[in-house]
Measured scan of single mutants.
Amino acid sequence: KKVTINGVEIKFNNPEEAVKFALELAKRLNLRIEFHGDQIKIE
Rank of each mutant, 00 (worst) to 15 (best):
K1M: 15
K1E: 05
K1T: 14
K1Y: 15
K1H: 13
K1F: 15
K1D: 06
K1V: 15
K1W: 15
K1I: 15
K2A: 09
K2N: 09
K2I: 15
K2E: 05
V3Q: 02
V3K: 02
I5E: 02
I5C: 15
I5Q: 02
I5R: 02
I5M: 05
I5W: 13
I5D: 02
I5L: 08
N6I: 08
N6W: 15
G7K: 05
V8A: 04
V8Q: 06
E9K: 05
E9S: 11
E9P: 07
E9I: 13
E9Q: 09
E9D: 07
E9F: 10
E9W: 12
I10K: 03
I10V: 06
I10Y: 14
I10H: 09
I10W: 10
K11G: 07
K11W: 15
K11S: 12
K11R: 12
K11L: 14
F12I: 04
F12K: 00
F12L: 04
F12R: 01
F12G: 02
N13G: 08
N13H: 08
N13V: 09
N13T: 11
N13D: 12
N13E: 11
N13C: 15
N13W: 11
N13A: 13
N14M: 08
N14W: 08
N14L: 10
N14S: 14
P15S: 12
E16R: 11
E16Y: 12
E16P: 05
E16N: 08
E17N: 06
E17K: 07
E17I: 07
A18C: 15
A18L: 11
A18G: 04
A18F: 13
A18M: 09
A18H: 03
V19E: 05
V19T: 06
V19F: 12
K20F: 10
K20V: 06
F21P: 00
F21H: 01
F21N: 00
F21S: 01
F21Q: 02
F21R: 03
A22S: 02
A22L: 14
A22I: 14
A22T: 04
L23R: 05
L23I: 10
L23Y: 08
L23T: 07
L23Q: 05
L23C: 14
L23K: 05
E24H: 06
E24G: 07
E24T: 08
E24F: 11
L25F: 08
L25K: 00
A26I: 07
A26K: 02
A26C: 14
A26G: 04
A26R: 03
K27T: 10
K27E: 08
K27L: 11
K27Y: 09
K27V: 06
K27P: 01
K27C: 15
R28N: 04
R28M: 09
R28L: 10
L29T: 02
L29D: 00
N30S: 05
N30L: 09
N30H: 09
N30E: 03
N30M: 08
N30I: 07
N30R: 11
N30P: 03
N30W: 12
N30Q: 07
L31M: 11
L31D: 00
L31H: 01
L31S: 02
L31I: 09
L31N: 00
R32H: 06
R32W: 06
R32V: 07
R32M: 05
R32D: 02
I33E: 00
I33G: 00
I33H: 00
I33L: 07
I33F: 04
E34H: 08
E34S: 12
E34W: 11
E34I: 14
E34V: 12
E34T: 13
E34A: 07
F35W: 12
F35L: 05
F35V: 07
F35P: 01
F35C: 14
F35M: 06
F35S: 02
F35T: 03
F35R: 03
H36W: 12
H36F: 12
H36Q: 10
H36G: 07
H36R: 10
G37Y: 08
G37I: 07
G37N: 08
G37D: 09
D38P: 05
D38G: 07
D38W: 12
Q39V: 14
Q39T: 15
Q39M: 13
Q39E: 14
Q39K: 07
I40L: 05
I40R: 00
I40A: 01
I40C: 05
I40G: 01
I40W: 04
K41I: 15
K41H: 09
K41L: 13
K41P: 01
K41V: 14
K41M: 12
I42F: 06
I42T: 01
I42E: 01
I42D: 01
I42V: 07
E43M: 14
E43P: 03
E43L: 15
